[in-house]
Simulated assay, not measured.
Amino acid sequence: MDHSYSNTKPHQKGKHLKLNDRTTIQELHSKGYSNRAIARELNCSPSTVGYELKRGTVSVYRYKAVEGQSTYELHRSKSLRLSQPTTDLSSQIYPIL
């Protein structure tokens, strides 16, 4: 947040949202803030806020930070980047031609 008394660190662009970021989105969204206003508070893109609201909406127009976090963790666990084993090419033997 932009307040001098705030003890929260601003979100860095290009980083994943944390649960406290999602809680901030939930609070500000329930107060009627726009995606752009929420993004300014978190220092992220307005589309990030929109995607997060879409991800964590359980019923019509009700966003819940915990639902967004659990959906994020589910998608992250199915990510190809995490599930692909690394291949060590130095252990493979290739014929010399």
Rank of each mutant, 00 (worst) to 15 (best):
L28F: 14
S47G: 13
Y61W: 09
S59F: 13
S34W: 11
Y61A: 11
T24M: 09
S59T: 15
K18Y: 14
K18I: 07
S47H: 11
V58N: 08
N20C: 04
L19F: 10
R40S: 14
N20V: 06
T57L: 06
A37C: 09
T23D: 08
P46I: 05
K31V: 04
K54C: 13
G56M: 05
E52T: 03
D21Q: 10
Q26K: 02
P46K: 07
I25P: 01
K54E: 15
C44Y: 01
L53N: 15
I25N: 00
K31I: 01
S30N: 08
N35G: 02
T23G: 00
K18N: 06
I25F: 02
V58Y: 07
N20L: 02
R40T: 12
S30Y: 07
H29W: 09
A39S: 11
R22M: 10
Y61G: 09
R36D: 14
N43H: 08
N43G: 05
L17Q: 13
V60C: 00
I25A: 00
T23R: 11
L42S: 08
L53M: 15
S47A: 14
T24P: 01
S34V: 10
R36T: 13
S47I: 13
R22I: 02
L53R: 15
S30V: 07
R40H: 12
S45W: 04
E27T: 09
N20K: 02
V60H: 06
L42G: 01
L42N: 09
L28I: 00
V49G: 02
T24K: 04
L53K: 12
A37P: 09
E52V: 04
C44T: 15
T48Y: 11
K31Y: 06
K18M: 06
V58F: 10
S34Y: 08
V58W: 04
C44I: 09
D21Y: 07
H29M: 05
R36K: 12
K54M: 14
T23S: 10
I38N: 01
Y33W: 14
I25R: 00
N35I: 04
K54Y: 12
Y33C: 14
S47P: 02
Q26V: 00
R40V: 07
K18D: 10
A39T: 05
R40G: 01
R55T: 12
T48W: 08
C44W: 03
L17A: 15
Q26D: 01
G56S: 02
Y51F: 14
K54G: 11
T57K: 07
S47W: 10
Y51Q: 14
A37L: 11
C44K: 00
N43V: 00
S59M: 11
G50T: 01
R55C: 12
L53W: 12
R22S: 03
C44A: 03
L53H: 11
R55Q: 08
Y51R: 15
S47V: 13
L28C: 05
S34F: 06
L17P: 11
G50E: 02
I38L: 09
I25Y: 05
Y33V: 03
L19G: 03
L42Y: 14
A37R: 15
L19A: 07
I38A: 03
Y33Q: 09
D21N: 13
S45V: 01
L19E: 01
S30P: 00
T24C: 10
N43F: 00
N35S: 13
V49I: 15
R55G: 01
L28D: 08
N35D: 15
E41P: 00
L42M: 10
L19I: 06
G32D: 12
L17D: 13
T48S: 15
N43L: 01
T23C: 06
